[in-house]
């Protein structure tokens, strides 16, 4: 089974890109599945159901979404194997910009949209920096110049990635993405594989349910800001 990890900011068009790319793969119905990792709510399963795409949704709830992803992705692979899928896509939303849910050797796709501002690629961090393929959406509503500057800013952060423009509505460009998916690594399990980048550090008092503000309530991993002297 080929595994592909897709990540990106909310509403960047991940689900649309995945749906169009699955269509472009042209594999038999039911052989490509999706596991969606989200924080609180998600309506994407309806869209996958409509297309008869086997799917599962996992909610991180109060757990850090990245930590939640990494502790469940192996289970996702087991589910896909049992289902007899030939391609499994994990879709991660609700991640902070510090995160990159990418695994060594596994095709990693980051989806960002042109409308989010030209400097966004420089702010996203590891999610963009460690991706193999960066898919840019919503290019049909901005100028050619903005698309080019956006792609340039992506290259400044991640010079080795392939940048593809995909239109999530018409599917333009999904064909090329599907070509890359076809070459993704075949795996049976994720056990003992390594993340490309460490997960955000956690375990401070707030991770464990503290709600009061003040130094005396802070324990564990805490990072203090240094303000200019006044």
């Amino acid at each position: 089974m080929k595994l592909i990890t897709v990540a990106g900011p909310p509403s960047s068009g991940k689900t649309s890109v995945i749906l169009k790319t699955i269509a472009a793969l042209g594999l038999p119905e039911g052989s490509v599945g999706v596991v969606k990792f989200d924080s609180l709510t998600s309506f994407d399963h309806q869209r996958y159901d409509e297309q008869q795409i086997p799917n599962q949704t996992a909610f991180a709830g109060k757990i850090c979404p990245d930590h939640h992803f990494v502790s469940n992705v192996e289970g996702a692979v087991e589910w896909g194997m049992k289902k007899g899928l030939s391609v499994l896509v994990t879709e991660s939303a609700g991640l902070c910009n510090r995160c990159s849910p990418y695994v060594n050797g596994i095709l990693s796709v980051c989806v960002i949209d042109n409308l989010s501002g030209v400097n966004t690629p420089r702010k996203i961090g590891p999610m963009l920096k460690y991706a193999d393929i960066i898919v840019v959406t919503k290019g049909d509503v901005v100028s050619q110049a903005e698309r080019e500057v956006f792609a340039f800013n992506i290259r400044e952060v991640n010079a080795s990635a392939t940048v593809l423009f995909v239109n999530g509505i018409t599917g333009q460009g999904a064909f090329m993405l599907a070509r890359y998916w076809q070459d993704a690594l075949d795996i049976r399990t994720l056990r003992d594989r390594k993340l490309r980048f460490t997960m955000p550090a956690a375990i401070c008092s707030y991770c464990t349910g503290e709600t009061l503000i003040g130094e005396m309530y802070q324990m564990g991993m805490v990072k203090r800001m240094e303000f200019d002297d006044v």
Binding site: G117, D140, S143
Partner: peptide, 8 residues
């Protein structure tokens, strides 16, 4: 295309 706008 005529749907394209400047957003910057």
């Amino acid at each position: 295309s005529q749907n394209m706008n400047f957003v910057m």
